[in-house]
């Protein structure tokens, strides 16, 4: 992609023009560092994708694919949206990879937690005596 190629280059001056892909930060004697500026077209494109995906996730509820499939479709769309936000709005695409590792680690442990607890709750439901509303009166 075009903006990626620009990102690799290191322009020396004239960086403040709008639309320039990145700006050298002048840290006096401490060297320069280059920050990635997301171009407007990309922001808009991501936004349009997000709106379309929202439309899809709402629209898909009007079709009955069965309980399980509907959940997974909804989750898949949500994951797609979340990925777009994280990659472009949250700059993960251009960030240090370790930040993505942090995010993935968090998601992994959330998944581990939820997965195990669901698995177990499914198993012990059979032994779970549900509260009853009868035979309590004296």
């Amino acid at each position: 992609m075009a903006h990626e190629i620009q990102h690799v280059s290191t322009p020396a001056g004239g960086a403040h023009a709008a639309g320039q892909s990145h700006v050298p930060a002048h840290g006096q004697h401490h060297g320069e560092y280059h920050v990635h500026v997301v171009p407007p077209w990309l922001l808009i494109a991501v936004f349009v994708c997000l709106v379309i995906l929202t439309g899809i996730t709402v629209g898909v509820t009007y079709f009955d694919f069965g309980r399980t499939l509907n959940v997974w479709i909804a989750l898949a769309v949500a994951v797609a949206k979340a990925t777009l936000v994280a990659l472009f709005f949250m700059h993960l695409r251009w960030d240090s990879p370790f930040n993505s590792v942090v995010l993935f680690a968090a998601l992994f442990f959330v998944a581990l937690f939820i997965g195990t607890v669901i698995l177990d709750s499914k198993e012990y439901q059979i032994n779970f005596v549900p509260p009853t509303s009868t035979s309590m009166a004296p």
Partner: peptide, 18 residues
């Protein structure tokens, strides 16, 4: 350490599988 918490629930009604 994140994979062993269930050993506190051995007699709490946790399923035999877990």
């Amino acid at each position: 350490s994140f994979l062993v918490w269930g050993h506190h629930l051995f007699v709490s009604g946790q399923s035999p599988l877990a």
